[in-house]
Amino acid sequence: MNRETAMTRQEAMAVLARSSLEKLRAAWDGWDSKPATELLRGPETGMIMIRGRTGGSGAPFNLGEASVTRATVRLGTGEVGFSCILGRDTEKARLAAIFDGLWQRDGDRGRIEQDLLLPLAERLAAADRTVRAQTAATQVNFFTMVRGDDE
């Protein structure tokens, strides 16, 4: 990774996991000079057991499972892309794995980040800001009524 990148691979994968199928499909459809892709595993749907912590910060316990889909793709240029995402969308998992593979290529990383990942990340951050602003509007402002009984 000798060129400057805007994100770590983990950050890129996190954005891919939360993006919509439509966004990924549009980006892939518009991608020129597509490399060959070979599915090494999946896309396959299963579950992971989600854990919580006793009391919030204590010993782990099993909270319940969640549907996940994962895929591993080898690009014609040799990179192996990987995805593991909540839900059962196999096509989204396949595309996320392809983009993870492309992200690893020095020549493509900048473009993926600029054209796909950063706009997606901004959109997700904006949605979070909206939730925060909506929640903030429901904050209780206490005021004290002085009754003057003590005079």
Binding site: G46, I50, G56
Partner: peptide, 23 residues
């Protein structure tokens, strides 16, 4: 349904102090 699905593994324990709080 969940008895028919394979289990891939476990998550890290959720960090509820780092939450996008809605309430």
């Amino acid at each position: 349904f969940r008895t028919t699905a394979p289990r891939f593994g476990f998550s890290e324990p959720l960090d509820t102090s780092n939450m996008l709080v809605e309430r």
